[in-house]
Amino acid sequence: MSEVDHGTKSKRLVFVTVGTTSFDSLVRAVDTQEVKEALFRKGYTHLIIQMGRGSYIPTKSAGEDESLDVDYFTFSSSIAEYLKSASLVISHAGSGSIFETLRLEKPLIVVVNEDLMDNHQSELAEELAERKHLFCARPQTLFRTIQEMDLESLIAYQPGDCNTGC
């Protein structure tokens, strides 16, 4: 008997979060057919988008016909359960979302919002990507980042220890 039962494919969730802001360009990017197909080819089965204050409404899908099951919501009192159940997180560049995801040791793609003025968030995301703790993208490069990402190349983030020299 085969170990893999193709009839009951295990759920592999991609959770997208924009935080409390509006980041329609990220929501639009994950809602494209090419991004959804790239995620499906990587073995993901479900996509949940937390869209915040955005006005762009993504397309829901029940996941039939070899495609992702897609759902969305605006806000939740806590996204912790979504992060815990995710196989991959795609996030805005807010430090809270980044570090909460890294603490959970979840693979992370941070998408920088280039519409923000004085974008210090991009510096954080780019530095952590350089250290191989996460992948960094822009809305227009998200598809390529997903296609090329190698989760095995990521290095677990070790938070600083305040007991040793703060």
Rank of each mutant, 00 (worst) to 15 (best):
L154N: 04
V89E: 02
F23M: 07
A38Q: 12
I79L: 12
H92Q: 14
L134M: 12
T141L: 08
G43W: 10
L104G: 02
K60M: 09
F23E: 10
T59W: 02
L83A: 06
F23K: 03
A156N: 13
G63I: 02
L134I: 00
Y72D: 13
K42P: 08
V112Q: 07
M51Q: 13
Q50K: 07
E105K: 15
A62V: 12
A29N: 02
E34Y: 04
H133D: 01
K132F: 08
G94E: 09
Q33E: 14
K36G: 07
K84D: 13
D118H: 09
D65T: 08
I146F: 06
F40L: 09
G160Y: 10
F73E: 11
M51I: 15
L26D: 06
E152K: 14
L68S: 07
I146N: 00
K106M: 01
V35D: 04
L47N: 10
E123V: 07
I155E: 13
Y157C: 07
L124E: 02
P58M: 14
F75C: 00
I48V: 15
A86V: 01
T45R: 04
K132P: 06
V110I: 10
S77W: 00
K106S: 02
S122C: 09
A156P: 14
S91C: 08
A80W: 01
V111D: 07
S87H: 13
V111N: 02
G160V: 07
G52A: 07
D65S: 12
K42T: 08
A93E: 04
L116C: 08
A125K: 03
S77A: 05
V30T: 11
S25Q: 06
S78P: 02
D65H: 09
E64V: 10
E81M: 05
A38C: 12
D118C: 00
S25C: 01
F99T: 00
F135D: 00
L128G: 05
L124W: 00
G43A: 04
L116D: 08
E81R: 11
V110N: 01
Q50E: 05
A86P: 00
E152H: 10
K42S: 11
T74Y: 12
D115T: 15
I146T: 02
R131Q: 15
V89L: 00
T74W: 13
L142C: 02
E114M: 07
F73Q: 06
G54W: 08
M51T: 14
M117Y: 09
L151C: 04
E37R: 12
F73M: 11
T45N: 10
V112N: 09
L104I: 00
D65V: 01
E34P: 00
K84W: 02
S55H: 13
A93C: 05
D69G: 04
Q147R: 14
A86Q: 05
L26Q: 05
R28N: 05
D31M: 09
S122R: 15
G52R: 14
S67D: 14
I48S: 09
D118L: 09
Q147F: 04
R41H: 15
R138E: 11
L134N: 03
S95F: 03
